[in-house]
Design a protein around this nucleic acid. Structure first.
Lengths: 185, 185
DNA sequence: CTTGTCTATGCAACGAGTTGCATAGAAGGA
DNA sequence: TCCTTCTATGCAACTCGTTGCATAGACAAG
């Protein structure tokens, strides 16, 4: 499992509480690694008892106190070890593709609305990515300071952008195909 | 869960045994829905006891007997109902992206080999897809017989092809970025 | 002053997925 | 003959992930 490692990366990029991590997993990191707050709290507990992360109670005003986590030495070592292990090719779960093939045994036209809904979700995400890219990665790097973290976050973001564009084009293809089958001749 | 529904679609396309399904899930269908044989056997049991599928003992020579499953009426109804339910946007688990961001806290250059390995896996898959497309979808459809199943399988395959091409281009981008960071100045 | 929302953390139960192991017939090669 | 490979099915144990629910402080709106 790699939720631990996703959390380590996120905490190395910036320490934070379980709640804050859960929100990051709803946004940036969550676009390529989904997790709910229950998963996150449970794993944080285990990571803390394994000595991978340290907790610090932070008193806040205007809101409840929080436990802020940061990565300990052994956590960094665990991440480093994981980075050097090969991983298996991703195991995909593309539910929509199953539905599309299943539509052959039902009414293909009935799927159009569902596919359009997915298309809208992706169409909403793309400008969000592009805005993030403009915000964080447009101005050229200060000379002499190649920031590895910045460069790597950018290349992952470029992957997200390419994925959304590819997906939008494919969903248009799917919709056109379903329409063709719904009204043949 | 949707493994049941993926199995229903696969059995509607062609009846088969648990073992045959497991092999399909290693190939065509498995490219967008992964499953092991243990999962498949367990779910087949449940589907049979729910009356979604019918089993038929098939005696074979030269090899062990098998239980061939086919979709029953209530299975078709269950699939139809599922097709009309909205699904949530896919929850992604892109381990490699986590690693790439994690490389900022380790040696970026050390990841190059791993990314190249993934690139090779995708580069191997693409010609496999293209060969399948040539084999099954090149000759134009016989006029007057728009085969919905064929069209829908083709559009899903086109999605796979687009995904592999996008991924290859992105992995090249990732490798170039890692090389740039590994040898700066 | 109650209701709703946001921050913040957590438990319990269940369902899904993974891993390791086991069995067994038939074929082919060492 | 033994070993391996392929077909074919399955159990048991465990981990992971999801869902529903619960608590609680602080604030804002009605």
């Amino acid at each position: 499992m790699a939720l631990e490692h996703a959390i380590l990366v996120s905490l190395l990029e910036k320490p934070g509480s379980g709640y804050e991590l859960a929100r990051r997993f709803d946004r940036s990191i969550g676009y390529f690694w989904a997790a709910t707050h229950q998963q996150i709290y449970r794993v944080l507990k285990r990571m803390e008892s394994d000595g991978w992360i340290d907790a610090r109670e932070v008193a806040q005003q205007d809101r409840p106190d929080k436990r802020e986590y940061s990565v300990a030495g052994s956590g960094r070592a665990a991440l480093s070890q994981w980075l050097h292990e090969p991983i298996e090719p991703e195991s995909v779960r593309h539910e929509l593709a199953v539905k599309i093939r299943g539509a052959a045994f039902d009414d293909p036209a009935a799927l159009i609305r569902e596919v359009e809904r997915h298309r809208r979700a992706h169409a909403d995400r793309l400008p969000h990515y592009l805005a993030g890219e403009r915000r964080d990665f447009v101005e050229p790097e200060a000379p002499g300071t190649p920031d590895a973290g910045r460069e790597l976050q950018h290349v992952v973001l470029r992957g997200g952008i390419a994925y959304e564009r590819m997906t939008l084009a494919w969903l248009d293809d799917v919709i056109a195909t379903l329409e063709r089958l719904g009204a043949p001749r």
